[in-house]
Design a protein around this nucleic acid. Structure first.
Lengths: 253, 253
DNA sequence: CTAGTGCACTGGTCTGACCAGTAGGCTACG
DNA sequence: CGTAGCCTACTGGTCAGACCAGTGCACTAG
């Protein structure tokens, strides 16, 4: 067995700095709200130049771990985790891989329906009430019926799904649906508001949500998941080219 | 209606540089393999100092869009999209949010089972053959039965799932399973190889994969999905604390 | 024609400087 | 005594210039 030598990857100074700070943050030694030393202080602690420190901070900032503000007498602030970096990566993916709206919606159908399946088993009574409240908000927004209130309807819709996803108890599903949803909303921005039969669309959407809620209340996860998939398909299908719909229908059994 | 003024967010010079280059890449004006001008050239094009250019490049590099190599007479290279940045973000999420193994496995069960559900409808004959080949490789690796060949078994296992996910036709599912799988493998590194009854585990895993494959061939997506979930549960449950298993069982109907 | 050597360039790093901005203490005024 | 306002000592953002080690290429000597 020949000795396998690893090629010594040249590791840049700023990477070392990134690694150390990253480790401190991820291990919890530096919690959200904690302050890093100032750049000039860091450069003596790490024995590197300020440009190196700054490049490291830029990387950490790009990863959403810290934030720095000019003039702040304290150093950079350690941020609580946010899916912003995930969101950025996924938006990039959507653009360079030319992800179709169908693919994104399909992904949401998968995640949301799985979430509701879990939620049907794991939901608390409070969460059930929150879902009910969200649907009530949707209904109120529909009755208001002024064009600008579509935002309210959409917000209530989002709130419903948020509760469901939270009730699933899976953080990853939560983060991913959040990210994908905003990417989807970015793609169809404005289109829903001027859909021809907006009101009937809302009415149907509300009915669907009620059916899903009923299934969740009954603990029938499979039905809830099926209903949710159909509901999402209904809601987004109008925005899809005909050719992309079959891939979504494959999820409707 | 009061005029809504946006707070003028101070936008740093390097961010402008990032935006412009990012736009050029994501719009396709700069494809993979293309070269950026050298840093010194960029600083005159953008009328900024070199440190600003470098910070911008660091950010772009952190997002996995470009790579620079010292001494390269051409500038930084535009990279094809890679989920590396996504992977990094998700690994961070797993650490700071203290994601449990159960949550990760649950997420994989959701994604993989959805993928196989889609694959049962959309798979080509070539993909079916590739799945078959992967199972054959698993069988071969098991028969070899030397301890070091667990890697081969695992690789064949991964290959099977990769084909399934590819057959689903959904890039997002593909990327996410890829990322989550490697995070999971990182968490249980080495543990599988010294499981007590490794051989029976492999044998059962192969049988499960065969059942899944049969369901896919028959076009029975629902069964394939159910079988796959059970298979994954079986495979990973031994690594889970008892308290975390029920959440996974919720997916086994 | 090839092997070898420079050279011109690259990115990585450091130093030092300036600016605009902030926070907190200090002072002067009410 | 309280407070409004200024002052100073910092901060991060940016630039300029320098040096180094490494690369690729053209040119040259064999």
């Amino acid at each position: 067995m020949g000795a396998r030598f690893e090629p010594v990857r040249a590791v840049r100074a700023y990477e070392r700095v990134v690694e150390q700070v990253e480790e401190a943050i991820e291990s919890g030694a530096l919690g959200p709200g904690a302050r890093l030393p100032s750049e000039r202080e860091l450069m003596v602690q790490f024995s590197v130049g300020r440009s190196t420190v700054r490049e490291a901070l830029r990387v950490l900032q790009a990863r959403g771990l810290v934030r720095s503000r000019p003039g702040d007498p304290n150093g950079a602030e350690v941020l609580p985790f946010s899916p912003a970096a995930l969101h950025k990566s996924m938006t990039t993916l959507a653009r360079v891989a030319e992800l179709s709206l169908a693919e994104l919606v399909q992904f949401r159908m998968v995640l949301d329906s799985s979430a509701v399946l879990l939620a049907a088993r794991l939901r608390t009574d409070e969460q059930l009430a929150a879902m009910e409240a969200a649907i009530a908000d949707m209904r109120a927004a529909m009755r208001a019926a002024t064009a600008s209130d579509h935002d309210a309807f959409s917000a209530a819709d989002v709130a419903f799904h948020d509760v469901v996803v939270a009730a699933s108890g899976n953080t990853l599903i939560q983060v991913c649906t959040d990210v994908v949803r905003s990417v989807v909303l970015g793609l169809i921005a404005g289109k829903i508001a001027d859909a021809p039969d907006r009101e009937s669309l809302m009415r149907r959407s509300i009915r669907h949500h009620e059916e899903v809620l009923a299934a969740v209340r009954a603990g029938d996860g499979a039905s809830a998941a099926r209903l949710l998939r159909r509901s999402m398909y209904d809601y987004y299908a109008v925005h899809l080219p005909d050719a992309e719909r079959p891939a979504l229908r494959a999820l409707l059994e």
